[in-house]
Design a protein around this nucleic acid. Structure first.
Lengths: 257, 257
DNA sequence: CGTCAGCTTGACTCATCTCAACTAGGGTGG
DNA sequence: CCACCCTAGTTGAGATGAGTCAAGCTGACG
């Protein structure tokens, strides 16, 4: 999925702070059955649904596009919509009052924004690169979930999976060195991308060094130095907009999970 | 709830590593309707159930008791049971292969162990002090959940709430100083205990300094020094088996969430 | 009364942060 | 087309918060 990401250099200047997300012509409305062909369906919560239900879901869906750095949802705001990502990647983050930033996760195609179905989002979500998503009105989606227990069950599975990943990340943040953090980040991202059909060797990094630092609880300088050192040590190669893994076993040992 | 915790000094020597949890005489079997009188019902997932359903749940329940330091569930092991805590507290933890330890959460009465209903637990759970809990066979509980969508919904709410707390904790681990970490821990614990009917001033600390350190991503020495300094600064008072908050506003400012 | 676990304290070390300069690439406007 | 600028990233030098290592304290228990 990352291979089809729009070049960052092609992005238009970021929209103003309060920009309203553009609503694309909804492909679902125009051409029924699109959900069935959806590339990320099998890895999404939608996988819980049968053909009839899928059609029902499709009627609730609306395609949304977000530009790089545009907010998908904002922490504390009423959650009018929930989303299923179909292309691009998103950072989930929390801010401290003084501006310190912690990225609590990166979302890739197939991931869901708004798992809790709660009235307010607990985090902000921002497009790291141009993003496509299926948008659902939260209340409508919630009603559908109430009518389809197996969809709720799937949502619950997704939420507890997220929780497990969050716990892994706590171990990383609390108990790992900078080098281990960077290695674990790269290995983890690689594995997710491979599952989505990507390369096991070349890892496109849509996020900035600052994003990585805020994800790993480090400073940008430490991330940069650590990646540089891994380059010097022939563990990886820094390439434009990403890295290439040279010595996977060594990287995996460092990630030592 | 903490006020009724059994004195640690009264605990018998810890059971052997592989000790089988003692099964108390099940009070539910002996005296129907106990769920109705359960003190933690309103804060538990059980709150989703009506009287009839509660009786149904009660038939699945069995009282379990765990001694201090006894394992409630072990990471990676098949999850034969799930639990609802009724007294005492539990640490949830993950270990790195080399023995580094990260506590990913503390559970108090009303909290649920095994929210995911998955076949294996992703974490270990250990009694910090003598613990009482309702035990349910996982498969039976899972079937009940499948039959009661509103119970599943409640479980899902609990899971997403946990996820939100986990994200808060990531901010703490990744972006806060030792002093902020300790302050946030104390304030957070106090707030939970208050919700369970405890004091807003005296905080019993059933967990050891090492537990706190492993929760906050610090060393035991740093936790000890930080608490000592707060004592010197008249922010709190160290009392046997806990602390007493002297200057709540100052502590809350440090916790600065 | 001795031992032991839990905790505290001190002295010193070091991984990471901070501050600062510098590089590279792309976009823009003259 | 070039000069400039701006953002992202890199690198170095020095500061520091938290870790490490090592005593010592205290209260509970045998």
């Amino acid at each position: 999925m990352m291979q089809d990401r729009i070049r960052r250099t092609a992005a238009r200047p970021p929209a103003a702070e309060a920009a309203i997300p553009m609503i694309a012509q909804c492909p679902h409305a125009a051409e029924p059955g699109l959900c069935e062909q959806c590339k990320v369906r099998s890895v999404s919560v939608c996988a819980a649904l049968g053909p009839d239900e899928l059609a029902e879901l499709e009627r609730l869906a609306e395609a949304a596009i977000f530009a790089k750095d545009e907010a998908v949802v904002a922490a504390g705001e009423p959650a009018s919509s929930v989303y299923n990502l179909t292309a691009g990647s998103v950072r989930l983050l929390r801010l401290l009052p003084d501006g310190r930033r912690q990225i609590v996760g990166f979302l890739l195609p197939g991931d869901f924004v708004g798992l809790s179905l709660a009235e307010r989002h607990a985090f902000s979500a921002e497009a790291i690169e141009p993003v496509r998503a299926c948008r659902f009105a939260r209340t409508a989606f919630s009603s559908l979930v109430d009518a389809k227990p197996h969809l709720l069950r799937r949502l619950h599975e997704a939420a507890t999976h997220e929780l497990s990943i969050a716990q892994d990340h706590m171990v990383l943040l609390g108990r790992r060195s900078a080098e281990e953090k960077v290695a674990a980040f790269l290995v983890g991202l690689r594995d997710r991308l491979v599952r989505l059909g990507g390369s096991a060797v070349t890892i496109p990094l849509a996020m900035t060094r600052q994003d990585i630092a805020d994800y790993l609880g480090l400073t940008i300088e430490t991330v940069s130095r650590t990646i540089s050192r891994m380059g010097r040590d022939r563990v990886l190669l820094v390439v434009p907009d990403g890295i290439r893994i040279i010595d996977a076993p060594r990287l995996e040992t460092l990630a030592a999970s």
